[in-house]
């Protein structure tokens, strides 16, 4: 099992989510997060240019069985990329997932995902 964490641009959320649903990946968790990488977002307020310290992003977390890893990663990479790839498009982290438990039934492992 894998735990996939993707950090993407907030405005890309709808597109990514629609693409995931189209690929029948329908069990996801979404968070609003802030952070900084190499992207500089310039905001103009009352004619003054401001560079915020932390940029809002959206984090998508998906737990999946091993065979779905590539499909999910590819779907996110193709849809979250802006204009063929710009600084700030985000990152995807893939980790091994030790255990998964469905609370309702107490099922464990791959069938609980």
């Amino acid at each position: 099992m894998k735990l996939i964490t993707a950090i993407i641009k907030e405005e890309k959320l709808d597109e990514v989510r629609e693409a995931l649903i189209a690929a029948e990946i329908e069990r996801i968790t979404v968070n609003r997060v802030s952070g900084h990488g190499r992207q500089q977002e310039i905001v103009v307020q009352r004619g003054k240019t401001i560079i915020p310290n932390l940029i809002p992003k959206v984090q998508i977390t998906i737990a999946c069985n091993d065979e779905f890893e590539d499909l999910i990663v590819d779907t996110i990479v193709t849809t979250a990329r802006e204009n063929g790839g710009t600084v700030g498009d985000g990152k995807i982290f893939v980790q091994d997932l030790k255990e998964c438990i469905r609370i309702r039934t107490g099922e464990r492992g791959g069938k609980a995902i």
Binding site: E10, E11, D14, R32, V43, P52, N53, L54, P56
Partner: peptide, 21 residues
């Protein structure tokens, strides 16, 4: 339309305070 009017047309967001900065 997908990105939203706030970001693309106005370059702002309505609920900025909900995010740390």
């Amino acid at each position: 339309e997908k990105t939203g009017l706030d970001h693309d047309i106005h370059g702002e967001r309505g609920y900025g305070l909900a995010n740390l900065n």
